[in-house]
């Protein structure tokens, strides 16, 4: 099972997780957009709605 083919050692100080930051920024945007879409579907698309 030793499939870790390590090409090099990267220490803590040499490592900036820029790929992680990029992925998580995309996730953040998806969340905000989807939240707004749900909000629209629920409260603004007509039909009966709860008021109290």
């Amino acid at each position: 099972m030793g499939t870790e083919s390590r090409e090099k050692e990267i220490s803590h100080d040499e490592f900036d997780p820029i790929g992680t930051l990029a992925l998580i920024a995309v996730y953040f945007l998806i969340l905000v957009v989807m939240w707004i879409v749900m909000w629209y579907a629920e409260f603004l698309d007509g039909g009966p709605t709860v008021v109290g």
Binding site: P17, I18, I24, A25, W35
Partner: peptide, 16 residues
């Protein structure tokens, strides 16, 4: 970067 995400996460929470 993790600090930036911490701020982003809090923004999200307060936005919700």
């Amino acid at each position: 970067y993790e600090k930036a995400w911490l701020v982003g996460a809090l923004v999200l929470i307060f936005f919700f």
